[in-house]
């Protein structure tokens, strides 16, 4: 039986955009934003990612941290429900569950430990991505604060990668944008961890943040109907 000890290398492995769990086919709303002309250079990309940091990233990171702490299937199902009702767009709910399912599948071969069985009883579509991410972190020996960091990184690197492909931006300049966002990204992860701990202490996951981006929700619904699209979301 493999046992995975606390390791920073595991965090780097999971946070790497090459980790094969399906994220490369998602743009985090960027494909729509590019089509609408809202993102067209590194400055507008920076603004888009800042928006993500304060909304989707904070919510995802607090759920990932909470799920990482969680040791029973019932509480995870409750967390999953709380995340579900925070996603207003059905297309985004589907994308999140699909990404969760794909991450769990890859984690089963990467870190095959019983902890992952906590997610076995979830409905057919699979659990939401941040919930799965938290459990996978626990399985890999990654601490809740790093689970939050991993969720924040994912929320901004996914659109950043898509910007390189869709806009042909200089990859070095895009890395520069991500580097500038590193301090606020760290702060978002810390805040998410605090919020997750508070919710846990009160035993009330409805306290977890519920920030949204109406324009991204609307754009996601529209994007799902495109005749030709490169990204799944």
């Amino acid at each position: 039986m493999p046992i995975f000890h606390m390791t920073r290398s595991a965090l780097l492995l999971l946070a790497d955009s090459r980790f094969p769990a399906g994220a490369h086919a998602h743009s985090g709303g960027l494909e729509s934003a590019v089509a609408a002309g809202r993102v067209h250079d590194t400055a507008t990309l920076h603004a888009f990612l800042t928006g993500r940091l304060h909304t989707a990233a904070l919510v995802a990171a607090s759920f990932a941290a909470a799920a990482c702490h969680c040791e029973n299937a019932e509480t995870l199902a409750e967390l999953d429900h709380e995340y579900d009702i925070r996603l207003l767009s059905p297309a985004l709910r589907t994308a999140s569950r699909r990404l969760g399912k794909q991450l769990l599948r890859t984690a089963r071969t990467t870190w095959p430990v019983p902890r992952l069985n906590l997610l076995a009883a979830t409905p057919d579509g699979g659990s939401h991505h941040p919930v799965v991410l938290g459990v996978v972190c626990a399985a890999a020996g990654i601490a809740p604060e790093d689970a939050a960091l991993c969720a924040v990184q994912g929320a901004i690197t996914v659109p950043a990668d898509a910007a390189i492909r869709l806009l042909g931006l200089d990859p070095g300049e895009v890395s520069g944008v991500l580097a500038k966002l590193a301090p606020p990204a760290d702060r978002t992860a810390s805040k998410a961890l605090t919020l997750a701990r508070m919710a846990q202490l009160k035993n009330d996951f409805s306290m977890l943040p519920a920030l949204g981006s109406p324009l991204l929700d609307l754009a996601a619904e529209d994007h799902a109907t495109w005749e030709a699209r490169l990204y799944a979301s």
Partner: peptide, 12 residues
């Protein structure tokens, strides 16, 4: 990438 480097979506 979808058929070789990260096959998660295709496998699913």
């Amino acid at each position: 990438a979808a058929i070789r480097d990260d096959i998660a979506a295709n496998l699913e």
